[in-house]
Design a protein around this nucleic acid. Structure first.
Length: 179
DNA sequence: GCCAACGTTGGC
DNA sequence: GCCAACGTTGGC
């Protein structure tokens, strides 16, 4: 999947499986991070229609996942970073695919990016809707202890605020949450 | 195009 | 508060 400008292409590498064409009806799985002091899963549950624009992503790799990968109906894990302990706490769903991130174009917004051309925006957001809290939060140390999750982007690349999971990883997370 | 300096994220 | 990891910037 050729990413549009600007920003480096993830092509020819480890993330090919993320952008590969989908079979009809195939879902892909994602994880987003948020600091609960800033915006928690409970905050999302309290939003009208339990929905929010996921704005403020300012990392090209995360941007590419969000813009080129996330598809209507895809399930998304909600992770609390900078928490004690950091943990996966809930599930949400993509209810609107990528559109330009208005905060990047708003001079008065802390996430304003003067380099982003309104006619050809650099940054995008999707809308996420809360589905349900996990039966219990899954703290980071417990995730790390599960060999089935050794390849998970969250555990390998600390700073990615939007990342993909393989189906097997998603399933492993779900069974941990039930146990 | 290389790489050092710098800034940010985020676990601990 | 500290610091490791790593993305970004800018000099050359």
């Amino acid at each position: 999947m050729p990413p549009k400008k600007p920003g480096p292409a993830p092509a020819g590498g480890a993330w090919d499986w993320v952008f590969a064409p989908r079979r009809k009806g195939e879902k892909r799985f994602w994880l987003v991070k948020s600091e609960p002091d800033v915006f928690s899963f409970d905050d999302l549950m309290r939003r009208p229609d339990r929905t929010t624009p996921w704005d403020g992503v300012r990392n090209f790799t995360a941007r590419n996942f969000l813009r080129d990968g996330m598809t209507l109906g895809d399930p998304v894990l909600f992770y609390h970073s900078n928490a004690s302990p950091p943990a996966i706490v809930g599930v949400c769903e993509v209810v609107r695919e990528a559109y330009p991130d208005s905060t990047a174009l708003d001079r008065n917004d802390p996430h304003f990016d003067p380099d982003s051309d309104p006619k050809d925006p650099s940054w995008f957001m999707v809308d996420l809707k809360a589905v349900r809290a996990l039966p219990r939060p899954l703290p980071l140390p417990e995730l790390r202890a599960n060999p089935a999750l050794a390849g998970m982007a969250l555990l390998r690349i600390g700073r990615l605020s939007v990342s993909p999971l393989r189906r097997e990883e998603w399933d492993a997370v779900m069974s941990m949450a039930k146990a």
